[in-house]
Design a protein around this nucleic acid. Structure first.
Length: 342
DNA sequence: CCCGTCACGGTTGAA
DNA sequence: CGTTCAACCGTGACG
């Protein structure tokens, strides 16, 4: 039980062993795009500079702000080839037993006795992979358009199954045997393709944060929620946005349609500032620290000046990067403990 | 001071 | 169904 979260030297909240929330990861990248130095980003967001450095480096390399896939293990014997053969056997003879498959793998020379999967492994493949395949197919047929024809064999490297040119695998995932690495150059595509304006970025940002903090499910102050946030994808509504945020995990259903460009639409931009429904104070999320911090940022920035009320006297306004130095009081205000309105 | 890097203690999840 | 273990995490410290 990872407890609740710890506080780092900068006063930021983090959960040991777990990735920072996407909202913060995104913010780090956004601030960097605005030309703010990493050291200032670190202080502003209260994230260690090592982490800022890492996230930015990864973003530069892969185009993704998302954390890598955690956990799991590479198949030791159940290589794509093996899975493919097993599938074939099963299709030809649906009643085939796992041990029969095992025998056949050996007989057909697919495996030798050293990399021959155990019966239980084969059962698991049957259960998980083969079964999943049909499910996936169903799913894909439902949402067909969104993405390029599925690979014939789902790569066991599920880590960054990007259908897009953004190859997050670059430099990260050691080439698994039999798994071609994606060309590194493909990782060079940037999101926010042509838009460097603050407003565009802000447009993106407000939408995103809505997605993230809008998450209504905070039944318990459990860290798992976080996982949900991290692991699940954003609600489909954010598809335009997700363009900039590739999902590393194949797992849950939603893959997002890749819009031709990641630019926020005009509507997005318009919506952001006029969005009436910002009630940051009411956003009680399990990641109090994080979302409190996030909401502080949501309320703070100057584009909200329009309605005046949202303006916080000592917000961590991105336009005044160093302001935080004089707002220690605010730090307390957004601190998880004090921020939680329980 | 800034920033890249890495040991550390941690979590996760497929095998 | 429980255990293993290699993947990833962010922090903090070093250089």
């Amino acid at each position: 039980m990872p407890a609740f979260g710890e506080v780092n030297q900068l006063g930021g909240v983090f959960v040991n062993g777990r990735p920072l929330p996407n909202a913060i990861r995104l913010r780090i990248v956004e601030l960097a795009q605005l030309g703010i130095r990493p050291c200032d980003i670190s202080r502003q967001l209260r994230v260690s500079h090592g982490c800022v450095s890492k996230i930015l480096a990864r973003y530069n390399e892969t185009g993704s702000i998302l954390p890598g896939a955690i956990g799991g293990s590479k198949p030791r014997v159940t290589t794509p080839t093996v899975v493919k053969h097993i599938r074939t056997y099963k299709q030809r003879d649906p009643g085939i037993f796992a041990w029969e498959i095992r025998d056949r793998l050996l007989a057909d020379g697919v495996c030798d006795k050293f990399n021959l999967p155990s019966v239980s492994s084969i059962s698991r493949i049957l259960r998980n992979k083969i079964g999943n395949l049909s499910q996936q197919n169903q799913y894909e047929s439902i949402k067909q358009a969104s993405h390029p024809a599925a690979q014939p064999t789902p790569p066991y490297n599920h880590i960054y199954p990007y259908p897009t040119p953004i190859a997050a695998t670059a430099g990260k995932v050691p080439t698994p045997p039999g798994m071609p690495t994606l060309p590194g150059h493909m990782a060079m595509h940037r999101i926010w393709p042509s838009s460097h304006s603050v407003t565009d970025i802000l447009g993106i940002r407000s939408i995103t944060e809505q997605q993230i903090s809008d998450n209504p499910s905070f039944p318990s102050a459990k860290l798992e929620e976080w996982n949900a946030i991290n692991r699940n994808n954003f609600p489909p509504a954010s598809s335009a946005l997700v363009n900039g945020m590739d999902k590393p995990h194949l797992e849950p259903e939603a893959k997002y349609t890749q819009t031709p460009n990641g630019l926020p639409t005009v509507t997005n931009y318009v919506m952001a500032p006029s969005m009436p429904a910002y009630h940051p104070a009411t956003q009680v999320s399990p990641y109090m620290g994080y979302s409190a911090t996030t909401s502080a940022y949501v309320t703070g920035p100057t584009w909200q000046l329009a309605n005046g009320s949202a303006l916080s006297p000592h917000s961590c306004d991105i336009t005044t990067p160093l302001a935080f130095k004089s707002m220690l009081g605010t730090c307390d205000a957004i601190h998880p403990v004090t921020a939680s309105a329980f």
